[in-house]
């Protein structure tokens, strides 16, 4: 998100992502901080869950 919605201005840059849980067909979405450009997060990048707060599931790159 280059232009974040209201309330997220201080959190930019970040990515909102849809990820697939290993060995399952289950998809979940989450918040991944500090992603400025698509090259920082190519499709297929492994991520892990680090927490859960008012943004929902919070992730980081593995």
């Amino acid at each position: 998100m280059t232009v974040p919605p209201e309330g997220f201005e201080d959190l930019a840059p970040y990515a909102w992502v849809v990820m697939e849980i290993d060995d399952s067909d289950i998809r979940v979405s989450g918040f991944l901080p500090k992603i400025a450009t698509p090259t920082d997060l190519p499709i297929g990048t492994p991520v892990k869950i680090t927490g859960f707060d008012e943004r929902g599931i919070v992730l980081e790159k593995q």
Partner: peptide, 10 residues
């Protein structure tokens, strides 16, 4: 899952 997590429609 979406708006609250910072995902606007764009």
């Amino acid at each position: 899952y979406e708006g609250q997590a910072g995902a606007s429609f764009p």
